[in-house]
Computed example of a mutant assay.
Amino acid sequence: MKIGIIAASGKAGSTLLEEAIKRGHDVTAIVRNKEKLQNKEVAFIEKDLFDLTSLDLAGFDVIINAFNAPQDKPNLHVTSLAHLTSILKDSDTRLVVVGGAGSLYINKEHSLQLKDGKDFPDAFKPTAIAMSEALANLRLVTDVNWLYLSPAAFFNPEGERTGHYTLTGEEFTTNEKGESVISYQDYAVALLDQIETNTDNQVRVSVRY
C-alpha cells in the first residue's frame, strides 16, 4: 500500500515508518523538517501538518497520523485532527490515528474514562482531555474512513519488538499481571496489522500485551 506517515521523525512515527518499510509498503514521511528523519532514504513531504492540502494527500491508501502536540499546546490534538478530516473527506484514503489511553473507559456504562480516575497523573491531564475531545469529534465524522488505535497506559519507547499483543476494545484492561503496557515497536506491529487485515471503519480499538 501507499502509506503516508505524519510526524514520521518522532518516536512513534519513526517506529511506524520502519515497520511499514520492513513490510514492503510504499512509504512517505510527512514532516516539518526532513533533517530530523532518521531514515534518509525514505520519500518525504516537508510540510507543516496544518499546511497540508487534499492534493498533498491524494493517492495515498492510508495516512497515519502520529502527531503528538507539545504539552503546553494540548489543543493541537483537537485542531490537527479537525484539519486532517476536512482535507480527507469524501476520499478513499483511510486515516489511522495514533491515539492515547486516557480516553479508554473504566466503567461498563462508558461514562468515565481513564483520565477521570483519581490516580491519573495531573501532568498528563491536559493532553488526555484534549485527546479525548479530539476522539469525540472524530466519532462525529462520517465522510472519512478512520481508525483510532489507543495504546496501553504505559506506552514504552524502550520496549522490544516481540510481535505479540492483545487487541482490545473501548475499555481499559490489564494483563494477568495487572499491567497495561505496550512497546512502541509492538504498537507499530499492531497498527500495521490493522491496516493490512482490518476493514473496520470509524471505530476505536486499543492494544496492550
Score class of each variant (00 low, 15 high):
residue 76 L to R: 14
residue 102 G to A: 03
residue 160 E to K: 14
residue 89 K to M: 10
residue 160 E to C: 07
residue 25 H to S: 05
residue 87 I to V: 06
residue 58 A to S: 15
residue 124 F to A: 14
residue 81 L to M: 06
residue 10 G to Y: 04
residue 121 P to G: 01
residue 49 L to D: 08
residue 76 L to I: 09
residue 89 K to C: 06
residue 130 A to T: 07
residue 207 V to Q: 05
residue 165 Y to V: 06
residue 110 H to L: 03
residue 30 I to R: 01
residue 6 I to P: 01
residue 134 A to T: 00
residue 178 G to V: 00
residue 163 G to S: 11
residue 5 I to Y: 00
residue 155 F to V: 05
residue 55 L to F: 15
residue 184 Y to Q: 07
residue 140 L to Y: 09
residue 89 K to A: 10
residue 146 W to Q: 02
residue 16 L to S: 09
residue 163 G to N: 11
residue 32 R to F: 04
residue 171 E to A: 02
residue 102 G to E: 00
residue 107 N to C: 02
residue 181 V to T: 12
residue 134 A to F: 03
residue 97 V to E: 03
residue 62 V to L: 12
residue 116 D to S: 05
residue 112 L to G: 10
residue 134 A to W: 01
residue 166 T to R: 01
residue 199 T to S: 12
residue 118 K to T: 13
residue 176 E to T: 13
residue 22 K to A: 10
residue 92 D to T: 15
residue 46 E to V: 02
residue 39 N to L: 09
residue 192 L to G: 06
residue 38 Q to I: 11
residue 148 Y to C: 12
residue 136 A to W: 11
residue 166 T to E: 01
residue 2 K to V: 08
residue 141 V to M: 03
residue 94 R to A: 14
residue 66 A to T: 06
residue 145 N to D: 14
residue 116 D to C: 04
residue 178 G to R: 02
residue 62 V to R: 04
residue 69 A to T: 07
residue 152 A to L: 00
residue 133 E to D: 11
residue 118 K to H: 13
residue 147 L to T: 05
residue 18 E to C: 15
residue 111 S to G: 14
residue 178 G to C: 00
residue 80 S to W: 10
residue 101 A to P: 04
residue 160 E to N: 11
residue 143 D to V: 11
residue 185 Q to G: 11
residue 39 N to P: 09
residue 35 E to A: 13
residue 176 E to A: 08
residue 142 T to R: 15
residue 134 A to S: 05
residue 176 E to S: 14
residue 33 N to W: 09
residue 91 S to I: 13
residue 66 A to G: 12
residue 203 V to S: 09
residue 48 D to H: 08
residue 95 L to D: 03
residue 16 L to M: 12
residue 196 E to V: 05
residue 168 T to S: 07
residue 70 P to W: 08
residue 80 S to L: 03
residue 180 S to A: 01
residue 86 S to W: 09
residue 179 E to Q: 14
residue 66 A to M: 10
residue 158 E to V: 12
residue 189 V to Q: 04
residue 197 T to A: 12
residue 26 D to R: 11
residue 113 Q to D: 07
residue 108 K to F: 08
residue 87 I to T: 08
residue 43 A to N: 13
residue 144 V to L: 02
residue 67 F to T: 04
residue 129 I to Y: 09
residue 199 T to R: 15
residue 94 R to K: 11
residue 168 T to K: 06
residue 60 F to S: 04
residue 140 L to H: 09
residue 189 V to A: 04
residue 147 L to K: 06
residue 131 M to C: 09
residue 18 E to S: 15
residue 186 D to H: 02
residue 194 Q to M: 14
residue 49 L to G: 03
residue 28 T to R: 01
residue 90 D to A: 10
residue 149 L to A: 08
residue 68 N to F: 08
residue 85 T to K: 01
residue 130 A to H: 10
residue 119 D to E: 13
residue 37 L to T: 04
residue 68 N to D: 05
residue 203 V to A: 10
residue 101 A to Y: 00
residue 11 K to E: 14
residue 153 A to W: 01
residue 99 G to K: 05
residue 16 L to A: 09
